Structures are given as C-alpha cells and as structure tokens.
Amino acid sequence: MTGTEKAEGKTAVAGRWDDLRPRVISAIVMTAVGAAEIWLGGPSFAVLVVLLTAGMVWELASITAPRQKNRPLLVAGLAAAALGAALVLRSDLAAAFLTVPAFALALTPRRDRRIAAAYAVAIMVAGYGLVEFREEAGTTGILWLVIVVVMSDVAGYFAGRMIGGPKFWPKVSPKKTWSGTVAGWVGAVLVGLGFVLAGMAGWGLLILSPVVAFAGQLGDIAESWIKRRAGVKDSSHLIPGHGGLLDRFDALIGATVLVMALGLFLKELPIG
C-alpha cells in the first residue's frame, strides 16, 4: 500500500467520525433540557412539545416547498395552535385538530403533498402522544420511551460505523445497516431489562422495547425517504451535528405513534 493510499484510508476512517463531536455536544444540551422538562412535566413540558412539534412541521413544509418563504411559518403556527387546542380540549375533537397542518400542506403547492400530509399527521400525533404519555405513565414511562429511542440510535450509530455490512434499505436510507439495526434492538432490550430489574416495569417490557425501537428506526427511515425525494441532506440546520429537529426526533415520532396505537388496544403497558 502506498503512502497516498494510507493517507486516503486514514481520511476515510476519520470521515466516519467527523460529526461525532458536534453530535455529542448537541446531545448533551438536548439531554439536559429534555431531562429538566420531563421532570417538571405539566404545562412546561407541554409547551416544549408544542414548540418542537411546530418546528418539525415547519421543516416538513420547508423541504417539500423550498420556494415558499413565509408559508412554512404559517403552517408551523397552525400546528402550534392546533396541538395546543387539542391538549386543552382533550376530547373527540382533538383528533380533528391534529389534522389541521396536514390539510394546510395538502392544499398548498408542494412536492409529494399526500406524503407530506400523512407525515404531518404523524408529527402531530406524536406531539399529542408525548404529553399524554407523560401524564398517564409518569416520569418512568416517558424516560423509558426516550431512553429506548436514544439507545437504539446510539447503538445503531456505532455498530453501523464499526461493523458496517449489508444495508438495511439502501434505496431509502443508504447509511442504515443491518448491524446497526440489530444493535439498536439489543440496546433497547438492555434498556427494558434495566427498568425491569429496577422494579419499575413488568417483564413484558423486554418484548415491547425492541418493538418500539424498530418503530423508531422506521420513523428514521421514513424521514430519510422524504428528504431523499426532496433532494436535501438535512431537514434544517438548527442543531449542530444533527441537522434539524426532524433529523433528531424522527425516531421518537415513530416510537410514540406506535405507543399511542398500542394504547388503543391494550388495557395497560408493562410500565408506568
């Protein structure tokens, strides 16, 4: 191997980790803020979720209609107002309010209007579900959900870069590998086991945790697919090392939507 080849090899290896430092710093800040809000709960947590939800809807509106400058902000405002109304009313009308941003996206010129509308519904349902799950399952439940998503992402990140191997769905998300996907499931099981051994959950959590992690991974893939169709790398540049809010919370959207769906069919979850 020549000196040039060695240098190129070192550069390639370094390139795999060049986003690690900003990712870690951003993760620490987000973890601190998120932990404080989860502990506080109540209106403070709800306000944070409403703002994050509106921000994600703004990113979705922006990447699917990049030539529109002010309209994405209007859609984000509608999302914040609609989610706030749904959280205040807590009635059958809540579901109707959660579809408001979807109609706004579907009825305005943009790329993939149906896909954007469907994903907007998922974002809104996830926002509503996070607040509701925090109230019903308490701090323990919401911590489990967040930690499962984070552990799955972290385990997948390191396993994917260190092990590599076959791609999970190369046409949709070229960076996702089977090694990272499986590592995410294993990490989720370990999180569930930790909660069980701590006496905070039932053994059913060992099954639920990897299922929720997989839903999170699908949420990540769905967002990657939308970005690829829109021809963008990141949903925005709000978070150093992570891109935008959707880039960071896409997995949480998928996981929360699944938990909300399970809540409709199960009497209770093995935690909270």
Rank of each mutant, 00 (worst) to 15 (best):
V146M: 04
E37W: 15
G199K: 02
A126H: 04
L193A: 12
I253L: 08
A27L: 09
I115S: 13
V172C: 13
D220W: 03
L87G: 12
F97P: 09
R134G: 10
Y157N: 07
G263C: 12
D112K: 11
A120T: 05
V189L: 05
G231I: 05
P270K: 06
G202Q: 08
F158R: 03
P210C: 08
K171Q: 15
L208Q: 08
T64I: 03
D234M: 03
A65F: 04
R110V: 07
E268P: 11
A79C: 11
M260E: 15
D220S: 14
A137F: 13
L74Y: 11
K175Y: 07
A117Y: 01
Y119R: 10
V172A: 15
V33M: 02
R71Q: 07
V57F: 01
M30F: 07
V33N: 01
R229H: 12
W39N: 06
V212E: 02
M124F: 07
V211Y: 04
L245W: 01
V150R: 02
H242P: 00
M30G: 13
W203I: 14
V125A: 15
P170C: 11
R114N: 14
A261D: 11
K69W: 11
P66D: 03
A46T: 14
G156A: 09
D234R: 07
G84Y: 05
G204K: 09
R134H: 13
T99K: 05
P72F: 08
G15Q: 00
G165L: 04
V47F: 11
D153S: 07
L269F: 08
G192W: 00
S179K: 02
L78M: 12
R23M: 06
D250A: 12
Q68V: 06
L107E: 03
P174W: 09
V212P: 03
G241M: 07
A104Y: 00
R23D: 02
A118P: 07
V149F: 01
F249P: 01
G77W: 03
M162H: 12
L78C: 12
G219D: 06
T53C: 10
Q68W: 08
F195G: 01
T31E: 00
W203T: 15
G241V: 05
A120G: 08
R113C: 08
E5L: 10
V259E: 08
V149P: 00
L264G: 14
V57I: 10
V49F: 01
I115H: 12
A261Q: 14
V33L: 03
K10C: 08
A76P: 02
G55I: 07
R21Y: 15
A222P: 09
E8H: 01
G9M: 03
G187T: 04
G127A: 11
S44N: 14
I271M: 05
R90K: 15
I28G: 10
E37Y: 15
